Structure formats: C-alpha cells, structure tokens
Amino acid sequence: MIYTITLNPSIDYVMEVEGFEEGTINRASKTNYYPGGKGINVSRVLKRLGADTMALGYAAGFTGNFIKEKLIEEQVAVKLLEVDGHSRINVKLKAGMETEINGTGPLVDDDAVKRLLQQLNQLSSEDIVVLAGSIPSTVPSDIYETLIQKCQQHEAKVVLDTGGQTLKSLLSYKPFFIKPNHHELGDLFGVTIQTQGEVIHYAGKIHEQGVENVVVSMAGEGAILYTRSGVYFAKAPRGEVKNSVGAGDSLVAGFLAGYVKSRTSEEALRYGIASGSATAFSYDLCQKTDVYNLINLVEVEKL
C-alpha cells in the first residue's frame, strides 16, 4: 500500500476570468473545485494508475467533508482525521497571468498528532509513505521527523516531496525517494546549478548520504535519476503545456506506481515522466490512458 500524508489539504477553487480588472466586479467564465494538497494529488493519480493507495492527514468542517466526499467519488481510500476549524480554500485565478490566494488551515493539536501516529502502527516493510508539502504553521514544526521515525519503526519506505530547510534537515533519515528540481537541489548546497553535469554531481552527493532514489526535474528538459544501479536521463515528451499545477505530484505518483509494478527505478522513472507530462498537457491531473499514450515516448538513457 502507498500511503500519502497531507497535513493541510485544501479545496482548490479554480476560476477562469477573461480580462480581469482590479477594483471592480469580474465574472468567471469557468469554475472548478478540486480536492487539493500535494499528498492528495499523489493519491488521486496513484488511484487512476491502478495502484493501492490511502490518503491520510487532517480535515475540518464542511470544507473537509467536501474533500473527503470528492476522494470517495474517485474511489480513493481516505482516512483523514477530523480536527477543529475548517480545511482551507485555495483560490487559483486564471486571467492572463495565474494568481493564487492560499487560505489558512485548521489547528492541529498534540492529540491530533497522536491519532495520526496511531494510524501508522499498521505499516509494514511492504508499505510506502509519502510525506508531501510544506509544514503549515498550525502543525508542530518537527512533525515530519516524528512521522519518519514512526515509519522507520515499521520498516516502511519514506518518500519526501518537500523542499528548503525542511528537506535538508531530513536527509539524514535516508528517505527512499526525493524529487527536487535543479533549483531546489542547488539550494541544498548553496550553489546555482546550470548544467546536467552539475545536476549529476550534486545528486550523487545526496545519494551518498543514503537516499536511494534522487530524481532531479529540469522542467521541460526532462529529469535525472541517480540510483544504486546508475545514473539515468529521461527526456520529456513534447506537447502543449496547459497546466503546471500537480505535474510534480503526478511525477511522484507515476514513479511509485511504476516502481511497485516493475521493482526497477529505471522503469519507475519512465512512468514518472509520462505521468508528470500527461498532467502538464491536461487541464486536470492525468488519466491512465494519457499516461500510457506517453510512456513509449519517454526516452531513458543510462549515462
């Protein structure tokens, strides 16, 4: 089973407005509501790719109920814990330039953390746990460390999809998989990375610290995988980019679905790039048919 933990899920309220004008009434030409949050996105894509997944984390109020209902509609197993307050609403305004306004989430107290840790007692060495997103201010700042320690007690693999100081401080726990882009990789070492050779050099330094799979995404240029069997470059297929939201989460989901299916990191990379690209070429998260249409177009080369 692949578990995802989203500490601060959201309703993503997407509004398309033609000719937006500040300070006056604007009418949306199109609106959509989606359950959001990085871990939630990973679970949604995993389910579409046929992988066993369960969404964990927190939900609150009528907005939290909406998130759970939408996940259930998509047949995603969900065990979001109830807390006080309301789950946040993130507004994404598409009007020429894209603007985001992210809401605040509910308060997660010590009791809520204990309940989440209790859920992880069911883990085994066959499981993968995805910790995705930044740590919200309403949650204890060391919660990822606490969750990783619980996962490792049960020998479950840990995936970290976060960045900045949070990621840097957690590398010593030797996660199974991380996915920084080349800018984030450079930030970990205080350098600016511009070439493929530099990506390989610094990804290797992360791998040497015990991270089994390091995937460094380079936007439309593809991605580098540094793993125990070697270094691989995957060239992204060409297409019209319609959506940037969730492409990275889809790459994570595709990589894990591919790994569970093939047990090889090279094939997992192919699935990941196809999934991320399929989302980028869609207006929502990718569908299975879109991913499989792209898989054979992903060129993977061992460097």
Rank of each mutant, 00 (worst) to 15 (best):
V130N: 11
K168S: 12
E184R: 05
Q165A: 12
L117K: 09
T195R: 06
S169D: 13
R88M: 01
L297M: 10
P180R: 04
P140S: 04
I273G: 00
E208Y: 09
G230L: 00
G103P: 07
R228V: 15
V78F: 05
S137L: 14
Y292H: 12
T63D: 02
S172W: 12
I224V: 15
N243D: 05
K174P: 04
Y271P: 12
Y33R: 13
L131F: 00
P140H: 03
N90A: 12
V91I: 13
A59I: 05
Y232A: 02
Q118A: 15
V139C: 12
L251E: 08
K179W: 06
D52I: 08
E266P: 02
Q118W: 05
V91P: 01
Y232W: 03
A278D: 00
A60M: 08
L49Y: 00
L71S: 03
L160C: 00
V113S: 13
N293F: 02
F20R: 02
K68P: 00
R48N: 07
N243E: 12
V298E: 01
I224G: 03
N243Q: 09
V129T: 04
R44W: 09
I143W: 05
V211Y: 11
A253R: 04
G64Y: 04
G272C: 05
F62S: 07
Y58N: 04
E100A: 10
A257Y: 07
Q149R: 15
G19S: 03
E126I: 02
E21A: 06
A203W: 07
V215K: 01
L297Q: 14
E198H: 00
L147C: 03
A95S: 13
S124E: 09
T104N: 13
A203C: 08
I101W: 10
V78W: 09
Q149S: 15
V108E: 01
L117N: 08
K261F: 01
K179G: 08
G61L: 06
V91R: 01
G57Q: 09
E18S: 10
L188R: 07
V113N: 10
V130M: 01
G246Q: 02
E98H: 11
K168F: 08
T146G: 07
M1S: 05
G23K: 03
Q287R: 14
L46S: 08
E74A: 11
V291N: 04
K302D: 01
I206K: 05
N243H: 13
L93W: 13
D84Q: 08
T192Y: 13
I101F: 10
E100K: 08
Y283C: 08
L120C: 02
G105H: 06
E301V: 15
